[in-house]
Amino acid sequence: MNIFRLLGDLSHLLAIIILLLKIWNSRSCAGISGRSQFLFAIVFTARYLDLFFTFISLYNTVMKIVFLATSYGTLYLMYIKFKATYDSNHDTFRIEFLILPAIALALLINEEFTVIEILWTFSIYLESVAILPQLFMVSKTGEAESITSHYLFALGSYRALYILNWIYRWFLTEKLNAIAIVAGIVQTILYCDFFYLYLTKVLKGKKLQLPA
């Protein structure tokens, strides 16, 4: 555990809490992609099945349980409690185009051909693209509420901090996982365009609006 990793995890947690609070306080999930949230729930479920088999640390176990609980909580708020506010007309990204290639790739490129390892690998590949329905939704409507952009910024920061964590671990000559690193870099790149807009617009008090 190093400072980048810890800040990355906290940033991830912050993103999830921002999203839950936004939905809860406004009693609305307008502008949020239920499809991305559904993909994140699949990601956590596939990856954290190791809760039953391996123990790494109390921190690790608690965070996994929190991520699982909050991701299902978000789905509950979006698809049941505040379903009437869900903007499904703009949430049209075909998630099978993400899930099926992630399954295929996990079966082809993995470190060990076991059920638990392939599920882990699948979750890594799927996480790297799970935000696409949300970014697609923002690009389709051409704008995002500030709170939605704060959510995306916290989520992107988590990925960027994980890269710093790997660089740090590299110099500590710790073991690193190539699959996680490649997928993590891909995932971070997806946020670059958004980061640019966030830094140049949202932080200056403007609404995130895409150039026409």
């Binding site: 995890d9 470190e111 073991k175």
Partner: peptide, 10 residues
Amino acid sequence: RLKSTTHDEL
């Protein structure tokens, strides 16, 4: 160094 790690990250 780039393989066979325990999955210690979230």
